[in-house]
Nucleic acid binder design. Structure first.
Length: 270
DNA sequence: CTAAGGACCTGTCGGC
DNA sequence: TGCCGACAGGTCCTTA
């Protein structure tokens, strides 16, 4: 479900509600996420205050003053903040119970997400090898062009590789390539520098606009307040097979690449 | 080293 | 109505 804009929307939603709050208890009803939620999680977190909630790629990191919680929403995860008690539903696997009575609830039907405790998230193997943030100055044409050198992988798979740049998932990879006029299956090493620069700009703009719209709701994404994201109407390629391209009117095509649905305009994207 | 495919898991939808 | 396959926003891990 969530790509960078959806994770950032979630982060912004919970930040004012949980930063400064003291965790009374973390209740793990189902520990079987991608990796088993550690048994000692509650012991590490109970009684501690959440000092900050930041995002690194699609990971959320809660700093507890002593140690960090690393959270990933996987394909179907979402966080909701509940000011009052309410009965958990089928896929509500984890609750953070706060001293003020509020609850942060993690729901994840497919359980591809994860929740871990670590001393320092930046040194954790999951985060340590990540590429630059796409909205930072570190992600520029020089960086992307250098990583593309000699690569025969499709440019779409390349920009979805978190070691190259974080946060770009299937929706926004398709959208950014459409904006930049680059064929998604073109070998990464065969995209010239000016077009790489255009792609960097397209990735930044599509992510920024999606964040402004509260993310993209395709099926079930909701922010921490339960509201959907409104970027879906701005999608020009993703899940638009057979519809006319907004730029030239050609029919948008769908193919599968790297086991992921890939949408493009055969006329505009070369 | 790079590249490709499988694995994890549940829910929904279309076709028969 | 029921069953079956395809598909879905991620990414680590194994294999070649």
């Amino acid at each position: 479900m969530p790509e960078l804009p959806e994770v950032e929307t979630t982060r912004r939603g919970i930040e004012p509600l949980v930063v400064g709050a003291t965790i009374s208890e973390i209740v793990v009803r189902n520990p079987h996420l991608r990796w088993r939620v550690p048994r000692e999680l509650n012991r590490r977190a109970a009684g501690r205050r959440i000092e900050s909630v930041r995002r690194r790629g699609k990971y959320l990191v809660m700093h507890l003053g002593d140690g960090d919680l690393i959270l990933h929403l996987g394909m179907s995860g979402s966080l909701r903040y509940l000011p009052e008690q309410s009965a958990p539903r089928k896929h509500d696997h984890v609750d953070w119970i706060f001293a003020d009575g509020g609850t942060l609830r993690l729901s994840d039907p497919r359980r591809f997400g994860c929740l871990l405790h670590t001393a320092d998230a930046d040194r954790h193997p999951l985060l340590r090898a990540l590429g630059p943030e796409p909205l930072s100055d570190a992600f520029d044409a020089d960086h992307l062009h250098a990583t593309c050198h000699g690569r025969r992988t499709a440019i779409k798979q390349h920009i979805m590789n978190a070691r190259i740049v974080v946060g770009v998932g299937n929706i926004y990879a398709n959208e950014a390539l459409h904006r930049a006029g680059i064929h998604p299956l073109r070998a990464a090493g065969r995209v010239g520098k000016p077009r790489i620069a255009a792609l960097v700009g397209a990735i930044k703009s599509v992510l920024l606009e999606a964040i402004e719209q509260g993310g993209t709701t395709l099926r079930d994404f909701v922010g921490s307040d339960g509201q959907p994201g409104y970027f879906r109407t701005s999608l020009h390629a993703y899940e638009r097979a057979g519809e006319p391209c907004a730029g030239c009117g050609s029919s948008i095509r769908r193919v599968v690449s790297g086991q992921r649905a890939t949408y493009y305009c055969p006329t505009c994207q070369r």
